[in-house]
Amino acid sequence: MQGVVKVNSALNMRSGPGSNYGVIGTLRNNDKVEIIKEVDGAYEIRFNGKVGYASKSYITIVN
């Protein structure tokens, strides 16, 4: 499943599905991501070869 990031500035990509996990990357508006699955209000995603988590509130599914 594919998604597009929709933010005003940037969205943190984290090592786990919550803000208490470390930041492993930054997503920008209109970045395209692969959605692997939904976990606790976040999506597990793949972006630029990395797998991490981002809030589903800022990712629009575009299948």
Rank of each mutant, 00 (worst) to 15 (best):
G22K: 15
I61C: 08
A42E: 14
N29P: 09
L11S: 04
L27V: 04
V5F: 02
D31A: 07
G16D: 06
Y43T: 00
I59V: 07
K50E: 08
R46C: 12
A54F: 03
I24G: 02
S55E: 15
R14K: 07
N20T: 11
R28N: 11
G25E: 13
G3W: 03
G52A: 05
I36P: 00
N63P: 13
G41Q: 09
E38M: 06
D31T: 07
K37H: 08
V5Q: 01
S15A: 12
K32C: 13
G22Y: 13
Y53G: 00
S57I: 14
Y58P: 02
D31H: 03
R14W: 15
V4S: 04
V23G: 02
Y53R: 01
L27D: 00
R14G: 04
N63H: 12
I61E: 04
G49C: 07
V7D: 03
G22M: 14
K50T: 11
G22W: 10
N29Q: 07
V62A: 08
T60W: 14
E44R: 07
Q2T: 12
G52R: 00
M13P: 02
A42W: 15
K50D: 06
Q2P: 09
N48K: 12
N29M: 08
V23D: 03
Q2N: 09
G22T: 15
N29L: 07
Y53K: 01
M13S: 02
A10Q: 13
K6A: 08
F47S: 05
G52L: 02
F47H: 09
S57M: 14
S19C: 15
G52E: 01
F47V: 07
I24N: 04
E44C: 14
Y58D: 08
P17R: 04
G18P: 02
Y53H: 01
V23A: 05
V39T: 07
S15W: 06
A54V: 15
D31C: 05
S55G: 09
G25T: 11
T60V: 14
K6S: 10
K37S: 14
G49V: 02
S55T: 10
N48I: 04
K50A: 09
I35Y: 02
M13R: 01
I45Y: 00
T60F: 14
N20M: 11
R46D: 05
D31S: 06
E38N: 03
E34F: 12
E44V: 10
E34I: 12
N8M: 11
S55N: 14
L27W: 01
G52K: 01
R46Y: 11
N48Y: 06
G41R: 05
N8F: 11
E34N: 06
K37M: 09
K50G: 06
A10D: 12
E38V: 09
K56T: 10
G22V: 15
I59S: 00
I24Q: 03
G3I: 03
L11Q: 09
K32N: 08
G41S: 09
G18K: 06
K32W: 12
G16Y: 03
G22N: 14
S9E: 12
D40K: 10
P17M: 06
V33H: 01
N63R: 10
Y43D: 00
E34R: 06
G16R: 05
N63W: 11
Y53W: 14
K50S: 08
S15Y: 06
V23R: 04
S55D: 15
N30Q: 08
R14A: 07
V5N: 01
V33T: 01
T26M: 10
N12S: 14
L11K: 11
I35K: 00
G41V: 04
A54N: 01
S9L: 10
V4G: 01
V7Q: 03
S9T: 13
S55V: 10
M13G: 02
D31Y: 05
Y58G: 12
I45M: 03
L27E: 01
N29V: 05
N12D: 15
A10I: 15
A42N: 14
N30M: 09
Y43P: 00
R28V: 10
L27N: 00
A42M: 15
A10T: 15
Y43A: 00
I36A: 02
L27H: 00
S9I: 12
G3Q: 01
R14I: 08
K50V: 13
E34P: 01
S57G: 11
I35L: 03
F47C: 05
N30V: 02
I35N: 00
N29D: 09
Y21E: 10
Y21P: 03
S15P: 04
V62D: 09
P17T: 05
A10C: 15
N8T: 14
G49M: 05
V7H: 10
G18N: 12
N48A: 10
N20Q: 13
I35P: 00
N29I: 05
T60P: 02
F47E: 01
G49H: 06
N12R: 11
I59M: 02
N30S: 06
G16H: 07
G18Q: 06
N48L: 09
Y43R: 00
L11A: 11
K50M: 14
S55Y: 08
G3L: 02
S19Q: 12
R46L: 12
D40G: 13
A54C: 14
D31R: 02
D40M: 11
V62H: 08
K6D: 04
I61V: 12
G41T: 08
A42T: 14
G52P: 01
V62Q: 09
G25Q: 11
I61F: 06
K32M: 13
Y53L: 02
Y58T: 05
I45G: 00
K56F: 03
I45L: 08
F47R: 03
A10H: 15
I35D: 01
V62Y: 09
K56S: 10
K6P: 01
G16L: 03
R28Y: 14
V7E: 03
G16K: 05
K37E: 05
I24Y: 01
L11E: 07
L11R: 06
I35A: 01
V62K: 06
E44Y: 13
M13Y: 07
V33I: 06
V33L: 04
V7W: 05
L11M: 09
I61A: 05
M1Y: 10
F47K: 03
L27S: 00
S15L: 07
K56A: 10
K32H: 11
S19V: 12
S9W: 11
S9Y: 13
R14T: 15
Y21V: 04
V5R: 00
N8G: 11
Y53A: 01
K37L: 07
S57E: 15
Y58K: 08
V7Y: 07
T26Y: 10
K6H: 13
V39M: 09
V51K: 08
G3M: 02
R46T: 07
G22E: 15
I59L: 03
V51W: 06
M1C: 14
P17I: 08
V5A: 03
N29Y: 09
T60C: 14
Y21S: 15
D40I: 06
I35C: 03
G3D: 01
